[in-house]
Amino acid sequence: MSLSNLLNDWTRYRQGIEEGGFHDYEHIFGMAIDLNKCIGCNACSIACYAENNLAVVGEEKFAKDQGMHWLRIERYWDEPDLGADDQEFQEHGASFLPMMCQQCNAATCEPVCPVAATYHTPDGLNAQVYNRCIGSRYCSNNCPYRLRYFNFYSYYETSWPAPLDQQLNPDLSVRDKGVMEKCTFCIQRIRVAKDTAQREERELVDGEFTTACAQTCPTSAIQFGDLQDPNSKVSQLWKQYQVKLGTTEQSKQNKELRGYRVFESLNTEPCVMYLDRVREV
């Protein structure tokens, strides 16, 4: 570490605070999830299991909340006057919220990890280094979204019996007991796309890479892309709904602006924007 490095980092750090929005990152990968389109089919969750070698823990452990679903569809039931007491059409009152790691730019999990196993990449991603993790689980405790999953057992021993282990994704590791894991925004796919772009000496193009959940979503409710690229679909959506990184300022009076981020008031700067569901009550 040289002094100039330190000073450069300091300047960058000050800039990040004063300007907000973390403009100096090369990429900031973000999402926009339209809850109007989400039908709660759980396909994204299944795709995530397949893509990221998520362990299948079995019914008993899942019921104990020891599951490993990086992407979970949260189901909420409406108040009775919105149709929840309608015996015939109970599903009428359900609404869905797909929750994966929100890739916060001011992530609360990062400062508390004693060994810096979770840190921020220059791509604006909140990365988790499995080999570095010692399993203190402080990150999960400090995550207001509770979206970090811990390997409570050596799940791989029972998760994929004989032929099933052939379908594991070779692009990323299978985790053993004692490490924390979470959604990575399919960093292996991003890495492949970046390598290809570098080889071909061009910039990343919007749409040439996407996450497994976004790819699978039958209604295209999930959009994934680079927020630093002003022409990407995601940054267009963020602009359209006036959701900005580094600020929570937004005209909440305008009903057209459906965009919000979960627990915006905590200032964790998540990179996932949700578009509120409009009900035909």
Binding site: V112, V115, A116, I134
Partner: peptide, 27 residues
């Protein structure tokens, strides 16, 4: 700890990997 065999990683010691603990962490 989930991986108690690696607990010495919270202590700052000099390695050729140049990795330090996270001094911001209360742990």
């Amino acid at each position: 700890l989930g991986r108690v065999w690696n607990m010495y990683w919270v202590i700052p010691y000099v390695t050729d990997r140049g990795i330090w603990p996270n001094f911001r962490s209360p742990l």
